[in-house]
Amino acid sequence: MMNTIEIIHLRRHFTVGGETVRALDDVSFSIAQGEFVSIMGTSGSGKSTLLNLLGCLDTPTSGSYRLDGEDVQQMNDNQLASIRNRKIGFVFQSYNLLPRTTALENVELPLFYNRHISPRERTQRAKEALRLVGLESRMQHTSAQLSGGQQQRVAIARALVNDPVLILADEATGNLDTRTSYEIMELFQKLHAQGKTIAFVTHEPDIAAFTTRMIRLRDGRIVEDTPNTPVSATQMLQSL
């Protein structure tokens, strides 16, 4: 099976006050299609930097990053924007929904920036994505009318709507209580079961336990990369 992500000798250095900070220092790994990987680490471990690189928001100092077979490190800003638009779905800790905008319109947003998709298809796909996350009855609700968990579901629908090769979640349960966190993880496990490739950045081990593989970073290097037998979120919810 083809690897969705291939990272070889990836480095990302920052110069802060004349001093070089090695946020990522020689990192290599790949993620196969259909994997559900958690990327763990404390703050300062380099996981945010890695997330930015994986999300094509940043380019590496050296090393190579192939996403779905495409070399990313040589791309200009517009090409990166296009890659993000077509191949990546972002889920953020604080949802980042547009205020005073309906759930449907929020989910449609990535498709606005794809000129090959007609308005009709846009709405149709957004509705489908909302159905997938169980919010078909709240399409016309604005963000303010939705609970935190529902907002995060809208954000997940927004990440699904462009049918990306990689869903990139950044502390996606960080703002939610335990029950809602488990519900969101249940949704991610469902998406994983449907064959989606997911990279889940978190610092909480009990959230990482829901994934099938754990990568742990410390001081810009990978210190642990182990397969994991995932805990079932559905069972966890029942036991609450």
Binding site: N78, A81, S82, F90, F92, N96, Y113, N114
Partner: peptide
């Protein structure tokens, strides 16, 4: 600013 960040993250180009 956050909205702009989000739009860029999900694929808006500079000219958009």
């Amino acid at each position: 600013t956050r909205e702009i960040g989000l739009r860029k993250a999900i694929g808006a180009r500079q000219r958009n």
